[in-house]
């Protein structure tokens, strides 16, 4: 009994260990804030992501300080006054692709599926469910998702004096191509 148990446990463990995962360090996250006064646009190309090919579970890790702005001072204020990246250096997004088994990795194709998971940013976690475009091309898999988030949902305060310059609603674009 004991022996079988150990063997089966060992089996489960080795299965887990051999789960096929794809990852990338060059995933991209950008956001855009539009107000009549000014547009703010920042891109982060140092996002890392990992995808478990067995079950469609994924994780994104976004170093906040790596967001690049057009103006140096905007970038400083983003980090210092809004995202407080000294205390909250990363944003995280974990979850799974719903109906992942619809994807066939053997042939090229495009799928519109749903990402469901938890986004943690500025110390606040929120459930997220958004459409994702999955592309398989030449055996490579990539994800692309566009959605809006509210700064206030993550306790990122925009003072009244800055409300004309910074929108509370931000258009976020996420894309990753796994190697």
């Amino acid at each position: 009994m004991k022996k079988t148990l150990f063997i089966s446990f060992g089996l489960v463990f080795s299965l887990a260990a051999s789960a096929q995962k794809l990852s990338t360090r060059n995933a991209e996250v950008s956001f855009f804030s539009a107000t009549p006064v000014e547009n703010i646009d920042a891109t982060n190309q140092q996002v890392s992501s990992i995808l478990n090919l067995d079950n469609g579970q994924f994780a994104f890790l976004v170093p906040i300080k790596a967001f690049q702005f057009e103006k140096a001072l905007m970038q400083e204020h983003f980090n210092e006054n809004y995202m407080e990246s000294g205390q909250f250096p990363t944003a995280k997004f974990t979850g799974e692709i719903v109906d992942y088994n619809k994807i066939s990795l053997d042939k090229d194709g495009k799928y519109t599926l749903v990402l469901a998971g938890t986004m943690t940013m500025h110390g606040v976690s929120k459930e997220i469910k958004q459409e994702v475009m999955v592309t398989v091309k030449g055996g490579k898999l990539s994800l692309k998702s566009d959605f809006n988030i509210l700064a206030s949902d993550y306790k990122v305060e925009i003072p009244a004096a800055k409300a004309d310059n910074i929108s509370n609603s931000l258009a976020v674009k996420v894309s990753a191509t796994y190697d």
Binding site: S49, I50, Q57, F60, T94
Partner: peptide
Amino acid sequence: QDDLLAEL
């Protein structure tokens, strides 16, 4: 999922 994150 957390393991995936930890790996990252």
